[in-house]
Each structure stands twice: as structure tokens, then as C-alpha cells.
């Protein structure tokens, strides 16, 4: 394997700086002790992290996001597993169209999704409710859940299932004791990716969230629209930290490039 030359390495350094700079600057500014946006020149201060506690709407929004992400990813995965099994093992009329339908939320601009859901739930009298948020986030994250469970189901050695059947396993036992454990890595990473997508979503959610059901990104977005101050940087820093931890776990478990490109086949 050829090594990278000096020009390549300079380019690489520049590139990495470009990628990291905005994230780093948020995290650094968050540690300022001043009451205005500034670099923490006189030592790191946790002032603005403590300040978050005085803004209950940020804390509430954080828990709303966690709850929303957990519920919608769980439902999405529960729906995605049987669908993935059907897609991976059977051919049927309309298979391609159905797959495109299930993946379409990836292609539809989130503004359009937000508008469509707002109209739909307003007509149904559910506008601004948690239920509306959950249902719309299930749709939003379903493609991610489906892609990862599908690649796990496709990569599975079917003769392992045949072996279990020949040993006398019934349908339920087969699923519980063999199929599910085998596709579990894909299911878990599908869930995690779904959770992160839901947790970070702002564009669609901004249409649907009411003051009681604002998610953290929505609260942050609305706050930043009015003014940018150290408080919102400390909140962002917390979010970045949480994502970073989740990322490293995902990377350890399955390899980040695999998860992101939809193949969780490292374990099979």
C-alpha cells in the first residue's frame, strides 16, 4: 500500500480542521465564564452548564427528545423486522415499489414532511400532541431501521434456520431463539441510528411541536433564531457530547462506515 505524500497530508490536515472547527468552537465557547460569546481566556468555567438548570424548557425538551427517539425507534424497529424478513426471503409482485415507498421518507424534503403532517394532524385534531410527534417520527426513521435490519436479514445464512427447523423448532421458537439473535446486531444498530435521527431532527419537528412538546433541537433552533448566547452553546456542547458517546459505541460495535452506508454485516 502506497503512503500519502506531504501534499496529501497537508490537504488532510486542512480538511479535518474544516470538519472539526465548528464543533470544537461550540464546545470551547461553552466553557466561557463571561456573560457574552467569547473564548474562555481566563480558564474553563462551568457557569453556562450550570445555567442550563435554570431553563426548564431546555431540560424538558431534552427529555421529550429522549422519549420521542426511544418510542419512535422502538416502534419503527418492531415494524421493520417482519418487513425485512419478508423482503429478504420472498419475491412477490410489487416488491420494488413497496421498498421504494418504505424508503421514500429519505427522499422527501423534511419541510414537505413537516407540512404534510401538520395538515394531517390538524385535520385529525392531534396537532401539537406527543402522539402526532411519535407517529411522524416513526415514518421518518423507518427507512433507517429497515435498511439495517434488511441487510442483517439478507446476510444471514438461511441454512441455520433450516437446521433449527429440522431439529424440531416451531415458528415462534425459531424466531425467538434463532432468527432474532442472528439479526440482533442489525436490529440494534438500526434502532440506534433511528434514535439518533429522531433525536437530531429539527426541520420536520419544528412544524409539529407545540410549546409543551418541543424537542431539544427545536428549542435550540427557536432560541438561536432569536439570539445566540453562551447558554445555547453549552446546551449544544451537551448534545454533541451525548452524540459522540453514542457514535463511539456504534463504531466499536459495528463500524461507523458500515452503519452509515446501511450494511451491518461486520458480525456475520
Amino acid at each position: 500500500m502506497k503512503r500519502n505524500g506531504p501534499i496529501a497530508l497537508i490537504f488532510h490536515a486542512f480538511f479535518v480542521t474544516f470538519m472539526v472547527a465548528p464543533i470544537l468552537v461550540v464546545c470551547v465557547v461553552a466553557f466561557t465564564s463571561h456573560g457574552y460569546l467569547s473564548l474562555p481566556t481566563d480558564g474553563l468555567s462551568l457557569r453556562w452548564f450550570r445555567e442550563i438548570a435554570n431553563y426548564p424548557e431546555f431540560v424538558r425538551a431534552f427529555w421529550t427528545s429522549i422519549y420521542l427517539g426511544a418510542v419512535s425507534s422502538t416502534v419503527a424497529v418492531v415494524l421493520a423486522v417482519p418487513a425485512a424478513l419478508a423482503f429478504s426471503r420472498y419475491d412477490f409482485t410489487g416488491k420494488g415499489a413497496l421498498a421504494a415507498f418504505f424508503l421514500s421518507p429519505l427522499m422527501i424534503p423534511h419541510v414537505v414532511l413537516g407540512i404534510a403532517f401538520l395538515r394531517f394532524f390538524t385535520q385529525g385534531g392531534l396537532s401539537g400532541t406527543m402522539a402526532a410527534l411519535i407517529i411522524s417520527h416513526i415514518i421518518l426513521v423507518f427507512p433507517f431501521a429497515l435498511r439495517l435490519t434488511l441487510s442483517a436479514a439478507t446476510g444471514m445464512d438461511r441454512s441455520i434456520e433450516s437446521a433449527a427447523i429440522s431439529l424440531g423448532a416451531g415458528n415462534l421458537t425459531l424466531f425467538r431463539r434463532v432468527t432474532l439473535p442472528l439479526i440482533l446486531p442489525g436490529v440494534i444498530s438500526g434502532w440506534a441510528l433511528s434514535f439518533i435521527q429522531s433525536f437530531d431532527e429539527v426541520t420536520m419537528t419544528v412544524f409539529l411541536a407545540a410549546p409543551g412538546t418541543e424537542t431539544l433541537p427545536v428549542r435550540m433552533f427557536l432560541y438561536v433564531q432569536d439570539n445566540i448566547d453562551p447558554l445555547v452553546t453549552s446546551v449544544s456542547a451537551v448534545v454533541i457530547l451525548i452524540t459522540m458517546v453514542a457514535l463511539m459505541i456504534l463504531d466499536r460495535l459495528y463500524g461507523l462506515d458500515a452503519v452509515l452506508s446501511g450494511h451491518s454485516d461486520r458480525n456475520s
Partner: peptide
Amino acid sequence: PPAKRGLGIVFQSYALFPHLSAAENVAFG
């Protein structure tokens, strides 16, 4: 149905349950 035929099968790929130990594999049936 295949589950009720009571035949023992050894597959080309072995088809062992990767999430079970050797003993658990054998105990499955």
C-alpha cells in the same frame, strides 16, 4: 412439516447457531 420429520441434517455450511456454545448447539434439538 420438516420440524416433525425427526431427521438429522448436517449442512454444507455446518449452519451452527453462532450465538450458542457447542453444548447449547447440541442441546437445541
